[in-house]
Amino acid sequence: MRYVVAAIFLAVFWIALSGHYTPLLLSLGAVSVVVSIWLVYRMDRVDGEPNRLTPSAGLFGYLAWLLWCVIKSNVDVARRIWSPSLPVRPVWARLETEVETPLEKTLYANSITLTPGTLTTDVRDDHFLVHALNQEDIDELRGGEMQRRIRRLGI
């Protein structure tokens, strides 16, 4: 069932990228969809339990909030770069985390990296190593709002 959904998605994706509707090109597209599905099927046998992120309203809400965070920290970093005295004090510190599932960890680490000013350098069981341009950025992460929002997603 999952493969059918994936095949339909791939077909739509292919048509959107191609924009040609001649029989030859359509059959080539069909062949590539079949080959991709076959590869996914083979990969699934290697990868024991695949993790899937299903799109939901909460996820899009989180992404919108993340976008706002990205904008805020972009402005902050841009201001620091342009100010003549270059007010950056890089820190590299442990960030205690409470996220448990692999998906939550991935999302959290990627969100931290996507926000300019903070960068996940290592992911461990109960903590991340985070490099930040300033102490305030780390303090904001330790405040834990991002983590709470991710845990609320329940993925």
């Binding site: 990205v70 904008i71 972009n74 970093v77 841009a78 770069i81 990296t113 996507l114 926000t115 300019p116 000013g117 903070t118 960068l119 490099h131 341009l133």
Partner: peptide, 10 residues
């Protein structure tokens, strides 16, 4: 890396 992230994220 943070500066590079600036140009890529926004």
């Amino acid at each position: 890396v943070h500066a590079a992230g600036l140009t890529e994220t926004l």
